[in-house]
């Protein structure tokens, strides 16, 4: 039985398999759709809306929407770019992002998507919220100032580590990340090697003692835009055709 269908993304025909999300199908075809809350190996969350595409004219989250025959998808349009810039801007002003001393700088997905979109400064006013840091754990620290509430650590802890270390509390602007312990992170069963620690796209969860093992300038997104690895897949395929 063949589960293969074809879709169109930005005028280009791609193959997809029934059951895949638009994001997975695009990745496999070498088309990069920006995303933050989605991560390979985790169930989709659909919360950041950075991956919004137009499917037959309607906005949909590519990371949650399954593919279907006859879909015509727009990914790189000025309108969608403006939408993504706006979402990224809001994530920046809603937290306290001091990239100049953040250990994650250069490896940070939020920053990398902003670089790729060419953002030079946010269009909104900074909120300078008051958020805490928890350095109680011997191997891991959490800086709430940088958390973008993507839920990757929540899912990674449950789905990959078979634990349940992180959860969200509160709603709307009061929503924040917390953990399953009365006072601090050291009271949880989080271990330094947990996948949850690596799942954070930004510098909110960091492993202690690793800060500048790779110098600034040689990091993941310092020279190549995020998504290049997906797009280079496409270039190889093109050459084979």
């Amino acid at each position: 039985m063949s589960g293969k269908i074809t879709l169109i993304i930005d005028g280009q025909e791609i193959e997809a398999e029934i059951g895949q999300t638009i994001l997975d199908a695009a990745d496999a075809a070498g088309v990069y759709i920006p995303r933050l809350c989605a991560m390979k190996g985790l169930s989709p969350h659909g919360s950041c809306r950075v991956c919004t595409v137009h499917v037959n004219g309607r906005p949909q989250a590519a990371c949650t929407q399954p593919v279907a025959p006859g879909m015509s998808i727009e990914n790189e349009t000025p309108e969608l770019k403006a939408h993504r810039v706006s979402v990224i801007d809001m994530l920046f002003v809603e937290g306290n992002h001091y990239c100049m001393f953040c250990e994650k700088s250069g490896n940070c997905e939020l920053q990398a998507v902003a670089y790729r979109l060419g953002i030079l400064a946010p269009q909104h006013d900074y909120m300078f919220p008051c958020r805490g840091v928890d350095a109680s754990h011997p191997e891991v620290f959490i800086d709430g100032n940088r958390c973008i509430l993507c839920g990757r650590c929540v899912r990674a802890s449950q789905e990959l580590d078979n634990k349940n270390v992180f959860q969200f509390v509160g709603r709307g602007i009061h929503k924040r990340l917390t953990f399953n312990a009365p006072n601090n992170l050291s009271q949880t069963d989080l271990a330094g090697i947990d996948k949850a620690v690596d799942s954070c796209p930004v510098g909110a969860i960091l492993r202690k003692g690793t800060a500048f093992s790779v110098p600034i300038g040689q990091r993941l997104y310092d020279n190549e835009p995020i998504g290049s690895e997906i797009e280079s897949g496409r270039r190889t395929n093109d050459r084979q055709v």
């Binding site: 001091y98 990239c99 100049m100 400064a121 900074y126 008051c130």
Partner: peptide
């Protein structure tokens, strides 16, 4: 022209904003 992160977002001095 706002030149640099301090002009753009307050930078290190803005750490007192909380």
């Amino acid at each position: 022209i706002s030149c640099g992160d301090c002009a753009i977002m307050g930078g290190i001095p803005a750490m007192r904003n909380n």
